[in-house]
Design a protein around this nucleic acid. Structure first.
Length: 266
DNA sequence: ATGGCAGGTTATACCTGA
């Protein structure tokens, strides 16, 4: 039995926050770090600097200026790869197999723009189609024995306690009923278990993102839980701990997302 | 009730985020 500590973090530019990656590596020391919004082309990803922090095993899918995801690991990765989703090559997914034959998938689901209507807003249409594609993918691959982990910035806060005000966010993209319903279908397609809510009771308010547009993000505390770690059934009894690193949202030059960590005993 | 910030770019305004 060994612990595997996995952290997911929408870093909002890996080059701007390379020192924060170093600090996370030192202070949290996850075995695996999954990043979203690295905002850099694969060729320009700071792979040497991150290898020097103890993460020489990497799989990166980047593009210029937007999106981009990466898996960083202390231990060797197998079957490294990425997929395109809903007909776009926009660097929103990477995967790899961890020691112990655990498949890890890291996603950056589209934010969806402002207007929660797919007819008026192509970005919202893209988001809904992305979630539906992920649902089909889950169903096609169902295997009750498979050890799989799905992490990422899924850009949907499903529970009433995952947002600062359920009522006031009902028409705000990330917490609309149509998104929450499709999100739940996607979760059941794995079927996946929300590892964070397995540990932290659903009755508790819990957020992983706070807007930059607040004078005092922590005092206002108008957060949403957009970043998730899900596991398949064989891994559910292995979930040992879960944590959202709210303190990291308060670091100098912080990302607007806090890292989320789950520890498994495998 | 509204407006508020941050990152990146063949930039010095505009797109994107959520």
């Amino acid at each position: 039995m060994a612990d595997v500590k996995i952290t997911t973090w929408n870093i909002n530019s890996v080059r701007l926050r390379i020192e924060s990656v170093a600090r996370l590596a030192k202070e949290v020391s996850p075995d695996v770090i999954c990043l979203q919004e690295i905002k850099v082309m694969t060729e320009l990803f700071p792979d040497d600097a991150i290898a020097a922090m103890g993460y020489p095993h990497q799989v990166v899918s980047g593009m210029k200026a937007y999106n981009g995801v990466a898996i960083l690991s202390k231990k060797p990765l197998k079957n490294k790869g990425q997929q395109d989703w809903v007909g776009k090559s926009d660097a929103r997914h990477v995967h790899a197999t961890l020691p112990g034959n655990i498949d890890l998938h890291n996603f950056y689901v589209p934010a969806g723009g402002e207007i929660p209507d797919p007819k008026q807003n192509d970005k919202f249409d893209h988001k809904l189609k992305f979630v539906q594609a992920l649902t089909r993918w889950g169903k096609e691959r169902q295997d009750p024995r498979a050890k799989r982990i799905l992490v990422g910035d899924l850009n949907i806060a499903p529970l009433e306690t995952d947002v600062w005000s359920h009522k006031r966010l009902l028409k705000v993209v990330s917490h609309t009923p149509v998104e929450v319903e499709l999100f739940e279908r996607m979760r059941k397609s794995g079927p996946w278990t929300d590892a964070v809510r397995h540990i932290i009771p659903p009755e508790e308010q819990l957020y992983s993102w706070w807007s930059y547009r607040s004078k005092d993000w922590s005092a206002a505390d108008k957060g949403r839980r957009l970043d998730h770690i899900w596991v398949t059934s064989p891994l559910v009894p292995k979930i040992k701990a879960a944590e959202i690193h709210r303190d990291i949202r308060g670091w100098e030059k912080a990302s607007d997302h806090a890292p989320v960590t789950v520890t498994l005993s495998v």
